[in-house]
Design a protein around this nucleic acid. Sequence first.
DNA 1: GCAAATATATACAGATCTGTCTATTTTGAA
DNA 2: TTCAAAATAGACAGATCTGTATATATTTGC
Lengths: 199, 199
Amino acid sequence: MSESSQAKPRSSPKRELLLDTAFRLFYAHGYHAVGIDTILAEAGVAKMTLYNHFKSKDELIVAALERRSSEISDDKLKALAKVSSEPLSQIEALFDWMDVWFRMPDFNGCAFLKAIAEYTDDDSPINQTVKKHKAASIASLIDLCQELDVPDPKNLAQQIFLLLEGSIIQAHTFGNADAAKLGKNAATTLIQAAKASPS
Amino acid sequence: MSESSQAKPRSSPKRELLLDTAFRLFYAHGYHAVGIDTILAEAGVAKMTLYNHFKSKDELIVAALERRSSEISDDKLKALAKVSSEPLSQIEALFDWMDVWFRMPDFNGCAFLKAIAEYTDDDSPINQTVKKHKAASIASLIDLCQELDVPDPKNLAQQIFLLLEGSIIQAHTFGNADAAKLGKNAATTLIQAAKASPS
DNA sequence: GCAAATATATACAGATCTGTCTATTTTGAA
DNA sequence: TTCAAAATAGACAGATCTGTATATATTTGC
């Protein structure tokens, strides 16, 4: 066994194709509802190739979610970089980012919330992957709120987080893409009120 | 065939037992994850009894959700009847109701949001049952906000709805029962701001 | 061009799923 | 008590699911 014979490449064309296809189908139809064979047929990949890259379906789901989490982070960062670095503008840009998302033709709610709905065991890797993603989302929101001149930035951030998540639910349940604007207006109201409150 | 040989009783002990057991298991573990046989074993009921009352698993899910929707409506009405009929108190009581819910040992998120996450087809009976339930929830919130002296009660109601749904997500994802209080505070802020705005 | 890694097709095991069928037993009301 | 409705047990069909085994083919680096 030479030194170059590593275990698995963490990135390969087939692996990427599988992750893309798996995420798309899981997102559109649900995790239990989509079987391995469906993914393989759609991707045009052999079953053993999948099981060579991933130990199990659950591991494929985790990998697909982690990939999606990175995509979202990168996409958000790019969107926030386009607007003023003032915290208020940054927070507003978060809602604008969601507005764009809600209007995408394949928008179908939040893949992470759907995953935690299907995998209820608190200790399962899928469940933990979801919590990690959402925790990171809150953390960056807290960072933004701490740049605001408000007495309790963490509290404000958590309130705004409710609006963000509520917007996703509203947009998904009723196909109401305007939920982002609704949340944005509410968030600015909360921020204004927090700024006006005594520190 | 005599006149008394009706089709199905819309209410019978076995039927109620099946609906209770089914909802509890679906809610705890997910809809696809729980099989018919598991429900039957838990309820101690024969398979043909289930299929005598319900045409299919999907129909059982719809019936369980509709039953749960009624339970929630009744429970909310009772809770709201206990506080002042002033709209502000009523809205606050909604968040207090959620606070109690979040602290129940078997709280596991919203059964309706979980259902729509698993059954993505817009036209499916399950999906429509969820939308009907959530639409009723918004409608009653709009009614409350219309009693408030604010320029755009419907807009305010929808913003508060984001907070309500966001609270459920937050409480479920992180086991944070304080999400209800968080939402309540944000809601009162929004209401105060709306009242202060020019009509 | 050679060798090792990667991917393929295909079959299959074993479990699980929904829903049906049948024959028997229990229940409840007249 | 009688008789029909309701529930039962259990087998079973047919589909689907995850994951494995095997043997062959293709790609890729050296």
